[in-house]
Every structure is written in structure tokens, then in C-alpha cells.
Simulated assay, not measured.
Amino acid sequence: MTQITERVGDIFDCPPSSILIHACNTKGSWGAGVAAAFKKYSPAAFHHQRTHCTTPSSSTISISTHQRSLIGTCLLIPPFPIIKPQLGKPSPPPSKPTTQQMDKKFWIACLFTSSGYGKNVDTPSAILRATESAVKDLGRQISDGKEQGCEMGGCYSVRINSGLFGVPWRDTKRVLRMAGVDMIVVRPESQKDEVVGSDGEGEVGVEDVQPESNSGGQGVDSVAGGKEEKMVQGERQDAEKIDTGKINKGLKRKSGEDGRDENGKKRGGTQTKLNFGKSQ
């Protein structure tokens, strides 16, 4: 199974030449959320993906058709991308690399998991299907790049789809485990809904957490069994009290020790105490 490890930190603090992964829409917009942070890190990468999203492969294909074809694919942007000219449009001036970009030389992997954003975001099920396909596409591109001698480090991802796309992280994580690309997921400290760790090395997700008990280390079954046994014992004791009370009451009435004689008149004298369970 694919190794998915979670860590707390800043994704832009990863080692040089790392591949940074995030989810994108096919409109070419990086206006909010994590995408805005990627745009700030590398304006050149933003222009590259925008050109990729808004430039059909031929003049006979509409932009909307082209964008639909991007769903489930990945755009792997090199550290210093070359901006391709758009059809019928002037080429944008090359963006000057930021200091961080010069030092880190990050690759940026854009997973196209939704055609739209905001109110037009795709359904969670469609996003998850596109995620699996896009990650597999990323894996093929990484293999091809390494065969060509490209310097590529490990894969680092944010919790893709869990922000503005609104897909629960645990659902996306299940898909990533089947997609075939090992990655380290970097999350801010404010996201505390999972225990940090590595799959197979003690990581416990929300869906895997077992309830704790105050039973001195006993398991859930033993605690439940102990409670059940106490309930049975309590019911048994209550039944014994009821039976004992009936017997006492019956004996008292029979022997006239309830303070009345056979004619119903009160009389004095002490009552005889009955010792049940003791040998005479």
C-alpha cells in the first residue's frame, strides 16, 4: 500500500527539489486558499498553469471542452517553467523567480480534481475519482522525469480537496493510499483531527481511534464484561432482598410478631430476630 505520512509544518519548508502537490480547478484560477500561497511562491508557475488551462491544443477545440479534458490529469511544473504563448494572445512577460524559488527549486504538481470552484465545485464523489486518476498521472510523469535525469526529490502534499473543495480529508486519504505515489502530507498545527505519524508506524486516524477506559489498562471488552457482571450481581442481590423480605414478613405474620395477637389486638413484648443463612 502507498505510504502516506502526516507531519505538522509549512509545505514551503520542504527540502530543495521536492515535488509540492495541491489540488486545482481547471479554470486556471489560484485566487484563494492554498493555491494563493503557491501563486505567491512562484508567479511563473501560476502563469504556466493558467496558460495550460486556457489554451486548447488546437483552434477547433473550445476552451470549455479543453478544460473538461483536464479533469483527472496532473500538470507537473518544473522549478523554472517556460511560459508558452497562448493562441492569438501576446505572451506574458517572464516572471522573475522569487528568492525562495531560486533556493528551493521546487516542482509543483497541480492535480486537476474539480472543473470549477466556489458554488460550481464538482461533487465529492467526482473529485475523489479525479484525484485517483490525477495522482496516477503524476506517478507516471515522475518516473519519466527521473529516467530523463531530472533532479526530483520526494513528494510533499497539503491536505488536498479538504479546503475550498469541501471533501473530508479522510476520504481523500483513502484514495491516495491506492494511487501508488508515496508522499508526506504537511498540515498546519491548527488541523488536529488526526494523530501525526506514518502508516504502519503507529498512525491513528480519526476513524481508527479506539475509546480509552479508566479500567487500569483493561480493554473495551473486559470493561463491558465487568459492567455486565456487576449488573447481574446487583440484580441477584435485589432479588435476594425481595425474597428475604417476603419470607420475613410471612414468618412475622405467622408467629404474631408483627405486634398483634390472633384477635387483632396489640400486645407488647419483643420481636424474635431471624438469622437466615446461619447454622442453629
Rank of each mutant, 00 (worst) to 15 (best):
I4L: 01
N214Y: 14
R260Y: 13
M152D: 05
S42N: 01
E151L: 05
Q141A: 05
P15A: 14
L138I: 10
E132G: 15
D10R: 07
S157N: 01
T54N: 11
D193I: 03
L70N: 03
I83H: 07
R174N: 10
V167M: 10
G31R: 02
K278Y: 06
P92K: 08
D137E: 09
F46D: 07
I82F: 01
G139A: 09
G256M: 07
K105E: 11
E189H: 00
V121I: 14
F80K: 06
N161G: 07
D10A: 07
I11N: 07
C150P: 02
Q191C: 15
H47I: 08
S91K: 15
D221P: 00
K266I: 11
G88M: 11
V185R: 12
L20I: 03
S133W: 02
A224R: 08
N161I: 08
F165D: 00
G200Q: 13
T60H: 09
Q218H: 10
S215Y: 12
V135R: 00
A126Y: 08
P92N: 06
T5W: 00
G225V: 01
E194P: 00
S190G: 09
V181C: 02
E212K: 15
Q271S: 14
L20E: 01
H52C: 05
K273F: 10
Y117S: 08
V167T: 13
V181K: 00
K230V: 11
S18C: 02
V196K: 06
T60S: 11
I11C: 02
K227H: 08
G28W: 00
D171S: 15
L176T: 00
P15V: 05
D261C: 10
D144V: 10
E262L: 12
E201M: 06
Q148K: 14
K192C: 15
Q271Y: 13
G197Q: 05
L176I: 04
E207K: 07
S64P: 03
V185N: 03
S198T: 15
D221Q: 04
F106G: 04
V195H: 05
C150N: 15
I127G: 02
F106A: 12
V121E: 13
S198N: 13
K89T: 05
Q67H: 10
R7L: 06
F38K: 06
Y156F: 12
V135H: 04
K254D: 09
P92Q: 08
N214E: 15
I19W: 02
I247L: 15
T65V: 11
Q49A: 05
F38C: 05
P93V: 14
E147I: 10
S62M: 05
G149R: 01
T2M: 01
P92F: 09
S95Q: 12
S125V: 13
L20V: 02
Q237A: 12
I63D: 01
S29V: 09
G28T: 06
H22Q: 04
E151K: 09
K89P: 10
G154T: 03
T131L: 15
S133F: 06
A179D: 13
C155H: 11
G234F: 06
G226D: 12
S42A: 04
T113E: 07
K254P: 00
